[in-house]
Amino acid sequence: MPKQGFQPFMESPLHHFKLDAEAQARRADGRIWCNELPHLGYAVLRGDTAEAGFAQLVQQVTGLALPLQAGAVSQGPQGVLMWTSPDEWLLVSHRQRLADWTAQLDGGFAAQQLFAQTVDSSGGLTLAWLGGTEHITVLRHLGVYDFESIPLGHMVSTVLGKATVQVIRLDGDGVFVLFRRSFADYVWRLLRRAAQPYGFAVCQLEARGDHPLFAQLAAPRPSLILA
């Protein structure tokens, strides 16, 4: 494909806050630590669990078991797969890998004539990590859900302020807050405001091989993904 010298660049939904510039190394004090995990790949996965072959294909392509319980999250070294509705899941991984996965999945769905699909949402979503001793308290300031009760390895879709978000709790260290691009400015400002009493700081996020989402930070950021 001739690129005619084009040099595409990506900007994440929180790009304008220039978070990298203020990010500092995370310390063990009581601050609220927060940052965006930019440029991940997201795909909405739709399918019917009653159709033979659907769950198997998903497992086969992604290595992730299709979560069947409300709010359950399947985790693997290459990404996560979250239950969002009885016939809907959200797949999060590195952009390039996600593009490969969705191509394979859609190919497989078509070949097996399954009533299933993926919908690329990589441009429309982003993820912020929120940690520190009071990270659940910050959520309690903004949303009416009983955030303390989210089991590890679960996701809950609810409301923070006036925005719908998904809160993903994989470990006790912090939570991931998933939100839509156009709401990103609002959600970020809201988190920053609520965290103010505890000391809000942007932290550097480090790639961690044992973590399904932090692991994705290790891979080089793609300059261009051709879907």
């Binding site: 409300a70 859900y145 609810t158 409301v159």
Partner: peptide, 10 residues
């Protein structure tokens, strides 16, 4: 579907 009691605002 979510099998949980939630607040009206959701």
């Amino acid at each position: 579907y979510c099998q949980e009691a939630r607040e009206e605002e959701e």
